[in-house]
Lab assay of single mutants.
Amino acid sequence: GHYRIRINGREFEIRGISEEEIRHLEEALRNGADEKILKEIVDRLRG
């Protein structure tokens, strides 16, 4: 998958993330885990 997200007015492209991972992120966001989720995304993109 290849997705664009906007955070604090800046747009980011996220590549190589699966539909299942996105559902997991959405679930966590609904549970209020904003900073933790951003850290997970950044860590994943770093490799």
Rank of each mutant, 00 (worst) to 15 (best):
D43I: 12
G1N: 08
L29I: 14
L38D: 01
G47A: 13
L29M: 11
H24W: 15
G1Q: 05
L25V: 06
A33T: 11
A33E: 08
E19P: 12
R44E: 05
G9L: 01
I37G: 05
I5K: 00
R30V: 08
I17V: 11
N31F: 10
E21R: 03
R44V: 07
S18T: 13
I7N: 00
L29N: 02
E13W: 15
Y3F: 15
F12E: 01
R30G: 07
A33C: 09
I17S: 03
I22F: 14
S18F: 03
L45K: 02
G47E: 12
R30S: 11
R4Q: 05
R44Q: 11
R6V: 15
R4L: 14
I22E: 03
G1P: 11
I5A: 01
K39H: 11
Y3S: 01
N8Q: 05
I17M: 06
I41N: 01
F12K: 00
A33H: 07
R15A: 06
E11T: 10
K36I: 10
I14Q: 00
E19N: 09
G1W: 03
R44P: 02
R30T: 08
K36S: 10
G16Q: 05
F12S: 00
I14F: 15
N31A: 11
L25Q: 00
R15Y: 14
E26G: 03
R46A: 14
A28L: 15
A28T: 09
K36Q: 11
G16N: 13
L45Y: 10
I22G: 04
R4G: 02
E26F: 10
H24R: 11
I5H: 00
E20W: 13
G47C: 14
E40I: 13
R4E: 02
K39N: 11
H2E: 06
I7S: 00
I41Y: 07
N31Q: 08
I37A: 10
R6P: 01
G16H: 12
E40N: 08
R46L: 15
E13C: 15
E13A: 03
I22S: 03
E27F: 11
E21M: 09
R6C: 15
G32T: 04
Y3K: 01
D43A: 12
L45Q: 03
E13I: 15
I22K: 06
E26N: 06
D34Q: 05
I14H: 00
G47Y: 06
E26H: 05
R10Y: 13
N31D: 10
V42R: 03
R30F: 10
L38V: 08
H2R: 09
E21I: 05
A28W: 12
A33F: 09
K39F: 15
A33I: 13
F12W: 12
G9W: 01
E11P: 02
R6M: 15
I7D: 00
S18R: 04
L38G: 01
I7M: 03
E20F: 10
E26K: 06
R23M: 13
R10P: 00
S18D: 04
E19M: 12
I7P: 00
G9Q: 02
R30E: 07
L38Y: 04
D34C: 06
E40M: 14
N8R: 03
K39E: 13
R30M: 12
I14S: 00
E27L: 14
E13T: 08
I41H: 03
E40R: 07
E20V: 08
R10K: 13
